[in-house]
């Protein structure tokens, strides 16, 4: 139950941050990407503020044996830059530029109940399931080759 409350608090804080920062407005995000046009550098301040707060704690947890309400820390261990990372990020960037929504602001928009938000989240979810299926398939193929 503690983990659920912690998750909910983190989600609520994240959502409030996205709305207050203006990042729930796709036009504002697109204007950040429009460096040679109506450039609005606000997004850089959002990321800067977030990193400034989070950075010292990611250093601190290296010295903590375990988190407060869970058994272990699960932080990414991958270090290698591979084709999948770049291809995925490029695909994500293309969609992000087209409309100005990434997964966080898209989910936040859901409660505004606009047809745009609902269509976006539905299609985003389908894309995610497709990516998981493709990733699982290539994993199985790799495992078969090892055997």
């Amino acid at each position: 139950m503690q983990r659920v409350i912690a998750g909910f608090t983190a989600g609520l804080t994240f959502g409030a941050g996205l709305v207050i920062s203006g990042m729930s407005n796709p036009l504002k995000v697109q204007n950040f990407l429009d460096v040679f046009g109506n450039w609005d550098p606000s997004l850089a301040f959002v990321m800067g503020g977030a990193i400034l707060v989070a950075f010292p704690f990611f250093r601190l947890v290296r010295r903590l044996p375990k988190p407060f309400v869970a058994d272990d820390f699960r932080l990414p261990t991958l270090q290698q830059i591979d084709g999948r990372l770049i291809l995925g990020s490029a695909t994500f960037g293309a969609g992000w530029g087209l409309i100005g929504l990434c997964p966080g602001p898209a989910l936040v928009s859901l409660s505004l109940l606009s047809p745009q938000a609902i269509v976006f989240v539905f299609c985003m979810t389908s894309g995610m399931l497709l990516a998981r299926a493709v990733a699982n398939l290539s994993l199985q193929k790799a495992q078969r080759q090892v055997r």
Binding site: G95, G127, A135
Partner: peptide, 12 residues
């Protein structure tokens, strides 16, 4: 855009 964002973010 939704499909691209969903696929790309999970694949990457």
């Amino acid at each position: 855009a939704g499909v691209l964002v969903g696929f790309g973010s999970v694949f990457g």
